[in-house]
């Protein structure tokens, strides 16, 4: 039995405590079996570094990102206004999230609706913990491994964060290999814009197959991501090429947690 300490905002408020940062878990991180592992890896790191945090638990609800991208502004704003009322009710100042979609929405689209927070992606939090010396990282089992990082669109192009995940991966004494299309020119995994929730339109190929092919061409041991949806798409891609035995798709948080045996 893992011994995770996951305080909720409600518990903190009852004790009169104010955690430094709210961990916004997101729908994937809460419900998707694969993404839940990423959530727990991040919690382990937060526990390990004695970071003062809390989650909303059952008070959390979808940020509305897929509704907004699909074109349903009504539903998006319903979600946003309800979430903002919860967040503002607790006086939340800083949010960390392991999902670039939640990250983007909370950071960029909530302020105009009255939700003003400092929002960071978990790779930025990890970079901060490493830089401040709170988190010591050694390569562990990843030492010398070939890792390629797939840029999530909503972390990269959408918010210009390309360095934090790479800075964290580089601490693992592993070899970071770039795909041909990376950073500003990173190729989408195919899940964004609410595509995750429907079949693709007619075409020659699935987007995730095209992207996985490119990732595999770097001959990696690990494909690293920073988004639960990219993770799903790349994992499916690796399975499509029957490489799941030799190539793992892992979130940056999982790399760090596993390397430190957390």
């Amino acid at each position: 039995m893992e011994n995770l300490k996951v305080p909720t905002m409600a518990e903190c408020a009852a004790k009169g405590e104010m955690p430094e940062v709210l961990f916004w878990v997101g729908c994937a991180g809460s419900f998707d079996d694969r993404a839940k592992k990423i959530t727990k890896a991040l919690v382990k790191i937060l526990n390990h570094t004695h970071t003062s945090f809390a989650v909303l638990g059952t008070e959390e609800s979808c940020t509305g990102d897929p509704a907004k991208r699909a074109g349903n502004e009504f539903l998006f704003q319903m979600q946003a206004l309800n979430n903002i009322s919860v967040l503002n009710g607790y006086g939340v100042k800083k949010i960390v999230t392991a999902c670039p979609h939640c990250f983007n929405t909370l950071k960029n689209e909530y302020p105009e609706l009255g939700g003003n927070y400092e929002v960071i992606h978990h790779t930025q939090l990890l970079q901060g913990l490493i830089d401040s010396g709170k988190l010591k990282v050694q390569g562990g089992s990843f030492k010398g491994k070939r890792i390629t990082f797939h840029d999530p669109c909503y972390l990269g192009r959408a918010n210009n964060e390309y360095e934090a995940p790479r800075a964290v991966i580089e601490k693992l004494d592993s070899e970071l290999i770039e795909m041909k299309r990376c950073k500003e020119r990173g190729f989408c995994c195919g899940a964004g814009g609410a595509q995750m929730f429907k079949e693709a339109e007619k075409g020659k190929k699935e987007v995730n197959i095209e992207r996985t092919e490119e990732a595999l061409s770097t001959n990696p041991n690990i494909i690293a991501t920073g988004c639960p949806f990219c993770n799903t798409m790349m994992t499916d891609g690796v399975k499509h090429f029957e490489k799941e035995e030799s190539i793992k798709v892992l979130d940056v948080a999982e790399l760090i947690a596993q390397a430190q045996d957390l």
Binding site: C27, S30, F31, D32, E60, S61, C62, G64, P66, A67, A70, N72, L75, M78, Q79, A194, M196, F197, K198
Partner: peptide, 13 residues
Amino acid sequence: GMLTNIENNGAPW
């Protein structure tokens, strides 16, 4: 379906 789920369950699933 996804939109209905968000509306009713607060999650796309």
